[in-house]
Design a protein around this nucleic acid. Structure first.
Lengths: 156, 156
DNA sequence: CCGCATCCCCAAAGATACTG
DNA sequence: CAGTATCTTTGGGGATGCGG
């Protein structure tokens, strides 16, 4: 844990609030894997290469649009590679690039933590909500409510 | 690395695309620390307790609104604690709860990775952009345009 | 089958002003 | 100082349809 602190200390030599120009590495990483889908993609690809359609089925609640975009971004950053087979109809295979592989370990640490602390977090949430009058619906807001009933946009 | 895979495998017993009801732990974690500010908060608090205003100065480009909200969410999930000193004018101190402390290690792993691979990522980006005709500005659209000229938010 | 483009909408976040 | 309330903006992302 003390070496955890050292890593964090090392980082915080960068000013924490610096969204412009020389962005700190952490923000970069966060913006990359922090979004809704990137990490899921990487995890799927960690197991084996996938075709576009396979990925779509694996993460069934992503739209084709976001799938494409996420994959592009990951490719752009050198985390995954894209192989086109000029068959008919065409097939495209995505797989983890070395850089992406190197991300697996730190990611696994996080996943592990999530798995272990998942329960505690929900317990804390329940406690908080009951303590704080359950009006948390306004206070803590939108995000949470949104997350819960994520069937959302069942509009048209 | 093989144990990294095992963690990921273990996770992927959960269906990867399951944004509703019984959300998988990973999504939960991502939604919590994946957002723009939470991780910064945690890092600041990892060093020492902070008052509200201190946090605001530490991460100068967050709005008071988002600061409050982020802190509330983190508190709700039991990652940080909030102590009110009924002085005049009032003071509020935030500090890492044990649960939050336990997050430091996995987070440090990620930060570490970010630090190491930061350069590779940017190299890959540059390569991709020059290869793909630099028309990536249209192609991959909105987000990338923002990312490319990482001076982005120099709106003011 | 893969992926790009267009349209459109809503939730998330910034700005601003006000309270205890 | 530490928030809260409100108003406005914007851009992320879903739906859909076409092109290779």
């Amino acid at each position: 844990m003390s070496n955890a602190l050292s890593a964090i200390e090392r980082f915080s030599r960068y000013p924490l609030g610096e969204s412009q120009s020389v962005c700190c590495p952490v923000r970069d990483v966060l913006d990359r894997i922090g979004d809704k889908w990137s990490m899921l993609m990487i995890m799927a690809l960690a197991m084996r290469p996938h075709r576009f359609g396979e990925l779509h089925r694996a993460v069934h609640d992503i739209s084709k649009r976001m799938l494409t975009q996420t994959l592009r971004d990951l490719e752009r950053d050198g985390l995954i590679t894209r192989h086109v087979f000029p068959t008919k109809p065409p097939g495209v295979e995505y797989r983890l690039a070395p850089l992406g592989q190197s991300l697996l370990e730190p990611m696994a640490g996080l996943i592990d933590w999530a798995d272990r602390c998942y329960g505690d977090i929900h317990a804390a949430r329940a406690r908080f909500d009951s303590t704080h009058g359950d009006a948390s619906r306004q206070a803590s807001s939108t995000r949470l409510a949104g997350k819960i009933s994520t069937g959302a946009h069942a509009r048209r």
